[in-house]
């Protein structure tokens, strides 16, 4: 064979090698996800933006653009302001509770003890329950007359005539504005605790045993080890857990819808529930869309932070 002669080239389009072409394979693997996101996230988002700038209602679905009139009306609505405030309060308080409780639970569960598997399973259970079912369970727990929580409080003499929380026989959890807010926060905390715990357990497990041993030999007791070694090494993963929690809590309407319907007197209304009441039940799709779009900037911020933290894991 002469050197000038070009050697025969085997094309990789032949069937057995098609999957070895990374470009092609990549496109094929990504396509379903792209279709899914465009259809179920991208399209509704665009639709919401279009609606929020129009006068569309359930009765009249022709789209006439009216500029920012809907946003203007929404912002000046007292219920919206209340809902916005509540959404932030519920998210911040429940996530703060989740952070502390999940950290404690994760530390407890990372220790070795008998029956550990069962306890772990039980703690994970709330996460596997559909949120609506869980909330219905809580509806009974917080019932104005039959609440088991009230019953326990009565039995330990904290509730009832002549006691600390008395004189009524029931607290009426969902009937009083502050208690109703507390109830919603409690249910959100209960719901997100398992996920955060599991994420933190994974974070704890990723700290090498050598580093804990080194800290123990270097003279660190429990608290020093916790605050100077464990928690700093877990910052990134704790941030991920909290950001997940923020997304789930901030956008959730099920808990409020089932427990209080936003009441009493809109005292537990949140953005998601208020957008639903206004847009679907009230028929004003345009204003409903405008309310829902207030979730957007917070979610974008959370998404950006998540991506940053996901990159910055520092365990060497």
């Amino acid at each position: 064979m002469k050197l000038t002669e070009a050697p025969a080239r085997i094309r990789s389009f032949q069937v057995p090698y098609v999957l070895d072409r990374e470009g092609l394979l990549g496109v094929a693997m990504l396509l379903p996800a792209v279709v899914y996101i465009v259809a179920l996230v991208g399209f509704p988002l665009v639709l919401a933006i279009v609606y929020s700038l129009s006068d569309v209602t359930i009765g009249n679905q022709t789209i006439d653009f009216v500029g920012f009139r809907n946003f203007d009306a929404v912002i000046h609505d007292a219920t919206f302001q209340k809902a916005l405030k509540n959404t932030f309060i519920i998210t911040v308080v429940s996530q703060a509770l989740v952070l502390v409780l999940a950290k404690i639970l994760a530390l407890a569960l990372s220790a070795d003890f008998r029956g550990k598997a069962i306890v772990r399973f039980l703690i994970l259970l709330p996460w596997t329950t559909p949120i609506a079912l869980g909330a219905i369970g809580w509806l009974w727990m917080l019932d104005s007359t039959f609440s088991p929580i009230d019953w326990v409080l009565r039995e330990v003499h904290l509730l009832g005539p002549g006691t600390l929380l008395g004189p009524d026989r029931n607290l009426v959890w969902l009937g009083r504005p502050n208690l109703a807010m507390a109830s919603v926060i409690m249910v959100h905390t209960w719901r997100l605790l398992p996920l955060a715990t599991v994420i933190m357990l994974a974070g704890l497990a990723s700290i090498p045993q050598d580093i804990r041993d080194a800290a123990a030999v270097d003279g660190a007791g429990f608290w020093r080890q916790l605050f100077q070694i464990t928690i700093p090494l877990m910052y990134p993963i704790m941030a991920i857990a909290v950001l997940f929690g923020i997304v789930f809590t901030f956008t959730d309407m099920t808990v409020v819808y089932i427990l209080t319907r936003g009441g009493p007197v809109d005292s537990t209304q949140v953005l998601a529930s208020w957008a639903f009441y206004k847009g679907i039940q009230g028929g004003d799709l345009a204003q409903g869309a405008a309310i829902a779009l207030f979730l957007f900037p917070v979610l974008v911020g959370v998404a950006v932070l998540m991506l940053i933290f996901a990159r910055r894991r520092e365990i060497a």
């Binding site: 050598d210 580093i211 041993d213 080194a214 800290a215 123990a216 030999v217 660190a220 090494l233 060497a316």
Partner: peptide, 19 residues
Amino acid sequence: PPRARKIAMVFQSYALYPH
């Protein structure tokens, strides 16, 4: 406990605190 034994230990992985 280890911290009361006045020992110092060097680990195979060095176990430096990465943060």
